[in-house]
Write a protein that binds this DNA or RNA. Structure first.
Lengths: 152, 152
DNA sequence: CTTGACCCTGTAATCGCTACAGGCTTTAGA
DNA sequence: TCTAAAGCCTGTAGCGATTACAGGGTCAAG
């Protein structure tokens, strides 16, 4: 299978495949005499594995760790990774629920028909942050070591 | 107020303030004779406004748009921005709820005591993605124009 | 024999920061 | 008075996970 076929088959961007290869997340595919990559079943499985993990929000370095688990070793590290991602997701859900409420309130505060001078949205945004927003910001600040896992 | 004072007072990283200035999100603070920036009340309000919007998950370009709304103009664009972010958040919550369920299932599938050969986590991860994970990936793919707003 | 579709490599852009290098200024203490 | 530390300045690079683009080679169809 050539790159574009893999891309279509697995619904993955062509460049992403090359990116994974550059990080040694997949074994290097064989090359045809003209230099074109050919992906075999093993390559495809590896890419699918990454897709699966990514769809669970697991980071690429952690995916590499999971992939490199020796079959006979104990699986504590797999547990650690899953638990860590679970906690992150739980926190994100809590944060997003707060954001949702706030944005809904903002949305309600405008009838769409006035000038922005009278607009509840603009007024509210200009007002000082409420206390629980500071809490949110602090949560984000604690996230320093995990830059890829902010609320955004 | 000098940079470090603003940083402490508003609980914002020192460099972030300069970053916002570089994007013209705040008016350029006055300079002392030695070149040091001094932040006045207006500067502080602008930074607070950005913090507030950021805490709601609004992107910097959108914050700029909100900031530039003329007082007398109508506030349709403010509404559009809020509604857009609300929809994004609602979708993210749905996605994260799915991820949570999946990771919980994964977590349950391992007793922590076996080898990774027998580990339910590793086994499940290697298995092919289920259909609703593909749905998730598609949602992400549709996010192309909003790279800062992926699930991560 | 040219056009277009595909492949290759390397590198820059994205977003919202954060960090660092290399240099100036100011303040406090020895 | 000297010096060290803290704070400021600028410009630039790094993060993570892609995506895009420039500049080139290869291949099949018309």
């Amino acid at each position: 299978m050539l790159r574009s076929q893999v891309s279509t088959f697995l619904e993955i961007d062509i460049e992403t495949i090359r990116y994974y290869e550059s990080l040694n997340l997949i074994t290097k595919p064989a090359r045809l005499s003209n230099g074109y990559r050919t992906y075999n079943d093993k390559n495809l499985e590896e890419i699918k594995f990454i897709q699966h993990c990514r769809s669970l929000g697991i980071g690429l370095e952690e995916i590499k760790a999971l992939k490199n688990l020796k079959p006979a070793s104990d699986c504590t590290s797999a547990n650690v990774i899953i638990e860590k991602n679970l906690k992150l997701i739980e926190q994100k859900i809590l944060d997003l629920n707060l954001l949702q409420i706030q944005l809904e309130n903002l949305s309600k505060s405008c009838s769409t028909k006035g000038t922005s001078e009278n607009c509840g949205i603009v007024k509210s945004l200009v007002k000082e942050s409420l206390s629980f927003k500071k809490t949110l910001l602090k949560n984000k600040a604690q996230d320093h070591g995990h830059k890829n896992e902010s609320i955004q």
